[in-house]
């Protein structure tokens, strides 16, 4: 990784982990399944980011491959919780959604498993078809998150106008959708980044910086969505269509 770009990834990991732990604490209070699913997903993502960062902070010698593989595996596991959260919140009664979860998890397991058996423990070999199997798993999952989040936001905006939905909740849908979109962008950046690495054994600074920016953006979005500061909540409430209608009246 270029220069100190890994610091950005480490910060993103800490934010994701902190938001995840906060949701897990909430789940222990509410006994809510969805808080738990999302909390596990975000906490595991944070751990994965940290594991990817460790070999870049200092020379870990022979531990480079095992630690990177651990980061890769933890991230693949975290995707299951992201998928299950999305399915159970938005498509609980749709059989196709269950099949989509199975298919993407199968893709991830096959991608990580078979490429590792073939010797690519880090998962950087873009010329391998199993890389793409794994890539599709962790790219289509946030694509689904993005689509469901934005669709839910579109309908929630209509309900906000009728006073049937809290504007903060509507905004949370939007942020969750944006998180999915930003994660997809990260997956897209990985393609040229890994292609360059396979050719030169070096991550180019351009893709490295771009990935860092979008990773920290995604982490910040989760912070605003699930740990929103008071000023932000006040601003959203003030900007809601109902608040504007009251102002006009």
């Amino acid at each position: 990784m270029e220069a100190n770009a890994f610091i950005v990834e480490a910060i993103a990991g800490v934010i994701l982990f902190a938001v995840g732990v906060r949701l897990l604490k909430l789940a222990s209070r509410t006994h809510g399944r969805h808080e738990r699913l999302l909390g596990i997903y975000l906490a595991l993502s944070g751990i994965s980011y940290a594991l990817y960062t460790i070999p870049l902070v200092g020379d870990v010698g022979s531990l480079y491959t095992p630690v990177t593989f651990a980061g890769r595996s933890v991230y693949a596991v975290s995707i299951y919780f992201m998928l299950e959260f999305t399915r159970s919140v938005f498509r609980g009664n749709d059989a196709w959604a269950g099949w989509l979860v199975y298919a993407l998890v199968l893709g991830l397991v096959a991608g990580v498993g078979i490429s590792s058996i073939q010797g690519d423990w880090e998962g950087y070999t873009i010329s391998s078809p199993w890389f793409w199997c794994e890539w599709l798993g962790y790219t289509l999952a946030p694509t689904w998150v993005g689509v469901e989040g934005i669709l839910a936001y579109r309908n929630a905006r209509k309900r906000v106008r009728l006073d049937l939905c809290d504007p903060i909740v509507a905004n949370r849908y939007l942020l969750w959708g944006l998180f999915g979109i930003v994660q997809v962008i990260c997956s897209l950046i990985i393609v040229p980044m890994y292609a360059g690495y396979e050719a030169t054994q070096y991550f180019s600074s351009g893709t490295d910086v771009a990935l860092g920016i979008f990773e920290i953006l995604a982490a910040m979005i989760t912070w605003f969505a699930f740990f929103a500061p008071k000023f932000y909540c006040s601003w959203i409430a003030k900007e809601s269509p109902n608040a504007n209608a009251e102002k006009e009246a």
């Binding site: 906060r22 909430l26 809510g32 808080e35 999302l38 919140v89 929630a156 903060i168 699930f226 929103a228």
Partner: peptide, 17 residues
Amino acid sequence: QTPGSVDADEIFRRLGG
């Protein structure tokens, strides 16, 4: 409610703590 269906608004409200 239909078995398996959930109120997404309620879930997303709870997720804010």
